[in-house]
């Protein structure tokens, strides 16, 4: 697993409201995913659906370290990142339903969430394909003096493709403010990390480009936040790119089509012992930040948010057929 031992809530320097908000976001992501999985089974959602269960602490901790004018760019397993960035779960669910009210007007689906107004620059489904884009966004930030940091999220599987190495090299060379965040959940589809990567400690791949790199416990939301705060400060201060490897695990299959024949149930159970939501709840309770009533209320609120999202998605209209011919060129 690596990483440091769990950060004490009390030492995090965060107020109660912020801490509870982290838990709220993680719960919301988990419930959204569970509901999406259920709706997929019922045929309400189609295409590829990649759920984020188990990895919630990575998104919530890391994205909490950003300023509103910073950017997030991520891979196709993007629901958690979008939610943590504050995209409206109603419009996310509508996107999964392929409705006109979805964040990408129903054109993108699960893998392609996007909300330019919130600095959420996608949801990209070609593995590794968005890393060069992050470099370009960093270039624009420097050039236009936007003082913007780009958080670029991808999986362990995405660190074996040429784009990854090309992007790290150029990011360092051009000194762009990009925080590369690898969600190492130990598998790319059904292929275990050690079967696909000659180096098992992914952060070491960044070290060869002299990019500061570290491994973080991705099941610990506060550790994720702390590491990302440091990385963002480095990038914003003109230090160039930074690399984080979050050790995490996806509790469900790669996608809804995955029979999960490649890993032991016992391995999954072991990781579930480190469920980031349960771990954080325990710590908040132990240190007296969370009461049973708080939790009950939070459960209720997040249930309602998801239920409202489903209702909104159900009731939203399909995109009009005229949409087919729109948005292809800026100046047709």
């Amino acid at each position: 697993m690596g990483g440091k031992t769990a950060t004490k809530v009390g030492q995090s320097g965060l107020d109660k409201k912020t801490l509870l908000n982290f838990l709220h976001q993680m719960l919301l992501i988990r419930k959204f995913e569970d509901k999406a999985g259920e709706l997929y089974a019922r045929g309400k959602i189609a295409g590829f659906l990649h759920l984020y269960n188990g990895e919630e602490a990575v998104a919530v901790g890391a994205i909490s370290a950003l300023e509103p004018h910073d950017l997030v760019i991520t891979h196709y397993r993007d629901h958690g990142h979008a939610t943590a960035r504050g995209l409206d779960v109603k419009r996310l669910m509508a996107e999964l339903f392929g409705k006109a009210t979805g964040v990408s007007k129903g054109h993108g689906g699960s893998m392609h969430f996007f909300d330019a107004t919130l600095g959420f620059y996608g949801g990209w489904a070609i593995v590794g394909g968005h890393l060069p884009l992050a470099v370009g966004l960093g270039l624009a930030s420097n050039y236009l003096r936007k003082n913007q940091v780009i958080l670029c999220i991808f999986g362990d599987g995405g660190t074996n493709i040429g784009y990854f190495y090309e992007s790290l090299n150029v990011a360092k060379l051009w000194n762009v403010p990009v925080v590369f965040l690898c969600e190492n959940n130990l598998y790319g589809m059904g292929t275990a990390l050690h079967r696909a990567s000659a180096i098992r400690e992914v952060y070491r791949k960044a070290a060869v480009f002299d990019i500061p790199a570290e491994r973080v416990d991705g099941m610990d939301v506060l550790a994720m936040r702390e590491a990302t705060v440091k990385a963002v400060a480095h990038a914003r201060g003109g230090g160039g790119p930074y690399f984080l490897e979050a050790m995490t695990y996806r509790f469900r299959g790669h996608s809804m089509a995955d029979p999960i024949l490649y890993r032991d149930k016992s391995e999954v159970e072991e990781w579930k012992q480190r469920d980031p939501i349960i771990l954080f709840q325990q710590r908040l309770r132990e240190e007296g930040v969370l009461t049973p009533q708080d939790l009950e209320q939070m459960e209720r609120e997040t249930d309602e948010l998801v239920a409202d999202a489903v209702k909104f998605a159900e009731e939203s209209p399909e995109p009009p057929l005229s949409d087919l011919h729109e948005d292809i060129y800026a100046n047709p």
Binding site: A46, G47, G98, K99, S104, G106, H107, G108, G109, H112, E318, P319, L321, D323, L324, H325, I328
Partner: peptide
């Protein structure tokens, strides 16, 4: 095929 990037929404995809 209709000359568009194929959208996700079922009705649009089918129409293309």
């Amino acid at each position: 095929g209709v000359e568009v990037p194929l959208p996700y929404a079922k009705n649009l995809e089918q129409a293309a």
